[in-house]
Simulated scan of single mutants.
Amino acid sequence: MSATTAIGPIVIPAPSTGITTLPVLDLITGRARTGAYGPDPATLRIALAFSTVQAVRHPGRTRGYRNEVLSLRLGAAVGSCAVEPGELPAATVTDCVGATVGELLDHPGTAVRVAALDAYLGHCRPHAPAYGARRFGLPAGSSLVKSRVRAAAVVGLLPLAAVRRVLVVGVVNSLLEQLRSHGVDYRACDLKGGTTEWDEPVHTDALAHLDDCDAILASGMTLGNGSLDPLLAHARATGKPLVLFAQTGSSVLPQLLGDGVTAVSAEPFPFFWLDGGPTVIHLYGGAGR
């Protein structure tokens, strides 16, 4: 579940101040520091940090994938950021424990900054109807069963009747399967390249295909690798639907609703692939809302 090629900051419009060159991570971090969401991040400490490593290949599918996720706990909230397997320095988890959120928002590692901001926003703005969230239950079952149910909910956030082709950034075969079932074309993009389960090419440069698509479906991992910014700028400039499916930054990305992002499927820890019992995702915005 990688995302598209990362590029440097570009000019993106802020909701209230016109034009800024801040990447979205810095933009939302700045709002957090000025009290837009709740208490000063410098007053809150991370008591627990952990990493999760996963490998999977669903029965009946020929390809699998691996994930590694850094997670930080703040009260009842867990903030997470996926990284490429093996990229996370061994000392990171230990270094985060006991640090303030404010300190971690200045950490040199992007994954730490994302996870800290995600934990902070999950603590200050939990997924709840008061903040626009709709609970969607995933049933007990295998990882593949849960993946397919989740995929149906995520794809349902797109205005499918008005969509000709979707740019999918971060390949998840269950999502592609759902788009195929609706007769919707797509361009699959992922840093790893390769092919989909249906032997279609997976492109490594998502930006090259933006103009060929009239909607964008992107993984939250784009927040962690910096590649969300050009997707967001394109959606803002063109009005194209931008739907995000997020385990990484699941509490961060809903803050962009109405500011280029049309819908978010937010899935905080524990993720569907960790628990065979019923779990929950939280849906924001979407077609007809």
Rank of each mutant, 00 (worst) to 15 (best):
V166T: 15
V145Q: 11
P139R: 15
A130E: 05
Y186S: 14
E177Q: 15
R61V: 10
A116S: 11
E84C: 02
A188K: 02
V83K: 02
A153Q: 13
P126C: 01
L179R: 04
R165A: 08
D118F: 08
N67P: 00
S181Q: 05
V155G: 06
A76W: 09
S80K: 07
G75K: 12
T100Q: 07
A153M: 15
S142M: 06
V97W: 04
A151F: 00
G122V: 03
R150G: 04
C81D: 03
G64Q: 00
H58A: 03
A119R: 07
T94I: 08
V93D: 03
A77L: 11
E177V: 12
P108Q: 10
L105E: 09
G79K: 05
C96Y: 03
A82H: 14
E87H: 15
V112T: 10
P85I: 13
G75P: 08
Q178M: 13
L105V: 08
R61D: 00
D118R: 07
P59M: 01
R57S: 06
E87G: 14
E87K: 15
D190A: 02
G109R: 12
Y65T: 12
C124S: 11
A152R: 12
A99Q: 04
R164P: 00
G137R: 15
V155P: 00
C124P: 02
D95C: 08
V69W: 14
L157R: 12
A77G: 00
L176E: 04
R135C: 01
G60V: 14
N173A: 14
H123A: 06
P139H: 05
Q178G: 13
A128D: 13
A151N: 11
V168A: 04
D95V: 08
R113D: 14
V166A: 03
D118W: 07
H182R: 11
R187E: 15
P89I: 10
A82Q: 07
A111L: 04
A153E: 13
G64W: 01
D118H: 06
L88Y: 13
V93F: 02
G122T: 02
S147Y: 03
R134H: 13
L117W: 06
H107Y: 03
L191Q: 08
G109W: 13
R165C: 09
H127L: 09
L167N: 05
V97F: 03
T94C: 05
N173R: 07
V114M: 06
L74W: 13
G170R: 09
V69H: 07
G98T: 01
K146A: 04
A152D: 12
P85F: 09
P89W: 15
V101W: 08
G193E: 08
A115C: 15
L117Q: 03
H127Q: 10
V69M: 03
L176W: 01
Y131L: 04
G156A: 05
D185N: 09
A99S: 08
A133V: 14
P85R: 12
G194S: 13
P139S: 09
G98N: 10
E177T: 12
V163G: 10
T92V: 01
P129S: 07
P126R: 10
A140Y: 11
T92N: 00
A153K: 05
G109A: 14
V155I: 12
Q178Y: 04
F136Q: 01
A161S: 12
L138H: 03
V166S: 00
A130Q: 09
D190S: 06
A91K: 06
H127R: 06
A76R: 15
